[in-house]
Design a binder for these strands. Structure first.
Lengths: 113, 113
DNA sequence: ACATTTACTACGTCAGACGTAGTACGACAG
DNA sequence: CTGTCGTACTACGTCTGACGTAGTAAATGT
């Protein structure tokens, strides 16, 4: 049986980032805007949270980074891009499963008025 | 606009406890069993998490405690009961609203396969 | 030319979850 | 009548992830 973890958004920031990387590599600034847009501005990830998530996830093997120098693709500034790995995709799928269980559990403790 | 917080279960442990207190006062051991049962064993709150939540919530004015001596109600052991306050009910309702938003936001980053 | 946006890095703090441990009493079985 | 299990906690310490503050520096807009 899947055990739900104790953290949700705290544990779902990584999932949100990985979701955006499923469609191709991206970098900090772009990801933060994607997350903001996809949530209609309801969730704005803090820069420090985002960049520390990168470090953690790269250490865990969920993402890989590579640097793109300015001019190389018409962009203005040197950027660090992140690409999701096989491990990262596996982790993402697990988190999706965990989410559906977590959601159902929390829902039982919610009394909508 | 309601801003979603950064913690969910981490921020919903208190909500789960308060939910169980809506129907009347309870105490640690009983609450932990209620949470376990209501979640079909999928979520088992740790004792330390539970008791530190009590301390925090009493400090915040969401709950009030009173001691029931053994024998007074046929129970075996001295227990500390917790009762939800008006403030606690307000907080619970806010958390329920926040949850529905949080859930919708997270859902946008979940790709069920 | 100056402000703003882009694209980060460094450092420190804090709250909440949780591991480990210990206490102590009651119930119950052998 | 004794040892084990269940009940009902308290104390203390650690860890993680979020996030505040700050700073750098180049590109871009006005």
């Amino acid at each position: 049986m899947v055990e739900i973890s104790s953290d949700v958004i705290r544990g779902y920031n990584d999932t949100m980032i990985l979701f955006n990387l499923l469609d191709g590599p991206s970098y900090g600034y772009e990801l933060s805007k994607q997350i903001k847009n996809l949530s209609d501005g309801k969730y704005v990830i803090k820069e420090t949270t985002l960049y520390s998530a990168f470090t953690r996830m790269e250490k865990n093997g969920y993402i890989e980074s590579y640097v793109v120098e300015p001019g190389a693709d018409g962009s203005g500034k040197r950027r660090t891009y992140y690409r999701i790995t096989e491990e990262g995709q596996k982790y993402y799928r697990e988190k999706c499963e965990e989410w559906s269980i977590t959601k159902d559990v929390v829902e039982r403790f919610i009394r909508y008025q």
